Amino acid sequence: MTVRVDGVDYEFSSLEEAVRFALKMAKSKGAEVQLHNGTFHVE
């Protein structure tokens, strides 16, 4: 599972870890999280 934040990809071994990271980053940026074909994008 890959989480992309500001064009940088972060790899996670589990969906749970990836979701937690994506939500944490989105909250800190006041951004939204989108899921596309198994890849999260924080914008």
Rank of each mutant, 00 (worst) to 15 (best):
V5T: 01
S13Y: 07
D9V: 10
Q34M: 12
D6N: 11
V42R: 04
F21N: 02
F40K: 11
V42C: 15
E17Y: 02
E43T: 13
F40P: 10
H41D: 12
Q34D: 07
L15W: 13
T39H: 15
E32M: 13
F12N: 00
T2L: 09
V33M: 05
A22R: 02
H41K: 05
M1Q: 05
L23G: 07
K27I: 12
H41R: 02
A26K: 04
K27L: 12
D6F: 09
H41T: 07
L23F: 08
G30S: 06
V5R: 01
A26F: 06
V33P: 03
H36G: 09
A18S: 01
L35I: 12
L23M: 10
V19F: 14
F12P: 00
N37V: 06
F40E: 13
V3H: 01
H41N: 08
V19G: 01
G7K: 02
A31Q: 06
N37Y: 07
S14A: 03
L15A: 08
D9S: 08
V19E: 07
A22N: 00
D9R: 06
V19S: 03
S28K: 12
V33R: 03
M25I: 10
D9F: 10
E32A: 10
K29A: 08
S14R: 04
H36K: 10
M25P: 00
G30Y: 07
H41Y: 15
D9I: 12
R4G: 01
L23E: 14
L15M: 12
E17M: 05
K27S: 09
E17H: 03
V3F: 03
N37P: 03
M1Y: 15
V42F: 06
T39N: 12
R4A: 03
V33H: 03
E43K: 08
L35Y: 15
F12C: 12
D6P: 00
G7R: 02
A22V: 06
L35H: 05
D6C: 14
G7E: 03
S14W: 02
E32T: 14
A31N: 05
M25H: 05
Q34K: 12
A18C: 13
K24V: 10
M1F: 15
V5I: 09
S13N: 09
M1L: 09
R4F: 04
F21G: 01
A18E: 00
V3N: 00
S13V: 07
K24M: 13
E11R: 14
L35R: 05
L15V: 11
V3L: 02
A31V: 13
V8W: 05
E43C: 15
V42D: 11
D6Q: 04
L23V: 12
M25Q: 05
H36P: 04
T2P: 01
V33L: 05
G7T: 01
Q34E: 08
K27C: 15
H41S: 04
E43R: 08
V33N: 03
A31P: 03
V3C: 07
V3K: 00
S14Q: 02
E11I: 13
M25N: 02
G30I: 05
S13T: 11
G7V: 01
R20L: 09
G38L: 10
V5C: 14
V19C: 15
G7D: 05
F40V: 14
V8I: 11
R20C: 15
G38E: 07
K29N: 09
A31S: 08
D6E: 06
F40N: 10
M25E: 05
V5W: 06
M1A: 11
F12I: 01
V19Q: 06
K27F: 10
G38T: 04
R4H: 10
L15Q: 06
T2C: 15
A22G: 01
V33I: 10
K24A: 13
G30P: 04
Q34F: 15
N37G: 09
L15I: 12
T39Y: 13
A18K: 01
H36A: 06
Y10D: 00
A22Q: 02
Q34V: 15
R20Y: 08
R20P: 00
G7Q: 03
L35V: 09
G30E: 05
V8L: 07
V3D: 00
V33A: 05
S13P: 09
S14E: 03
L15H: 08
E16K: 09
S28G: 08
K24Q: 13
D6K: 03
Q34T: 14
Y10S: 00
E16M: 08
A31Y: 13
T2I: 11
R20N: 10
K24Y: 13
K27E: 13
A22T: 01
A26R: 04
K27V: 10
V5N: 01
A18V: 03
S13L: 08
T2E: 01
E16N: 05
